[in-house]
């Protein structure tokens, strides 16, 4: 297993080495040690390899990930897995703000809490946060799912489009145009799929409440002016 010591090797070399891997590489498991909060670790990957980071990372770890699995054995700074397209990112600690921002696909699992704006402008990724999420999570989220086992902060789902938000605990307040919606069988089924993928077979989907867009602001209407 290739091990890269970021205490000794420049970040640029790590990312370049990962980008140079052919799709059918035999070097499918990489270890990164001494990350020491460095930014942009394992970004722009495009091959089905696993990168395990031993420690905490700075901003944008696994940014724009495609196909790869990135495991962070520590906490993650701002924008972890931002704009991810596919693959899997697992943060064993907490995540700072904008986790999974604008991401299009794959799965992001955060074992701890996620800070403000988790899943902002989400475009199709599934996010599972085992702890709580901060304020404005799911802001303008367009597609995908945010599943929160703990509580959600203020203004959840503000200006949300078609993304789905599932919260097991309490929601401090809902944002503009975000409402609670029925948890219908298709949602239970989908939630089951996501929880299983996140390795949570014992968590029951029916314990969650679902939130989404009231779609009142999709087209401008003069009577909605106070909502903006």
């Amino acid at each position: 297993m290739p091990t890269i010591d970021l205490g000794a090797v420049p970040l640029r070399e790590l990312n370049a080495a990962l980008h140079a891997l052919p799709a059918d590489t035999n070097e499918t498991h990489w270890k990164v040690i001494n990350p020491r909060g460095k930014h942009a670790i394992a970004v722009g990957l495009d091959v089905p390899v696993t990168v395990e980071v031993e420690g905490s990372v700075g901003y944008y770890c696994a940014g724009m990930n495609k196909k790869a699995t990135v495991v962070i054995n520590g906490s993650a700074g701002q924008g972890v897995a931002e704009n991810m397209m596919s693959g899997r990112v697992h943060v064993k600690g907490d995540a700072s703000s904008a986790a999974g921002a604008t991401a299009c696909g794959g799965l992001l699992v955060i074992d701890g809490n996620a800070s403000a704006r988790c899943g902002i402008s989400l475009r199709g990724l599934d996010i599972v946060v085992k702890g709580n999420v901060g304020h404005m999570s799911g802001f303008m989220a367009q597609a995908g799912n945010i599943v929160v086992l703990g509580d959600a902060g203020e203004h959840l789902g503000d200006s949300i489009y078609e993304a789905r938000l599932y919260v097991r605990g309490t929601v401090k307040s809902l944002g503009t145009d975000c409402i609670e919606k029925d948890l219908r069988p298709e949602h239970v089924k989908d939630l089951r799929r996501i929880l299983d993928a996140a390795g949570l077979p014992d968590v029951s989907p029916t314990e969650f409440r679902r939130y989404g867009s009231a779609r009142r602001l999709y087209n401008f209407h003069i009577d909605s002016i106070g909502s903006y």
Binding site: R12, N15, H39, A40, V43, G44, Y59, Y60, G63, Q78
Partner: peptide, 14 residues
């Protein structure tokens, strides 16, 4: 933050 964002984009595109 912008500085870090630029680094990320540069890292992604080598």
């Amino acid at each position: 933050d912008l500085e870090i964002k630029i680094i990320e984009l540069r890292e992604i595109t080598d």
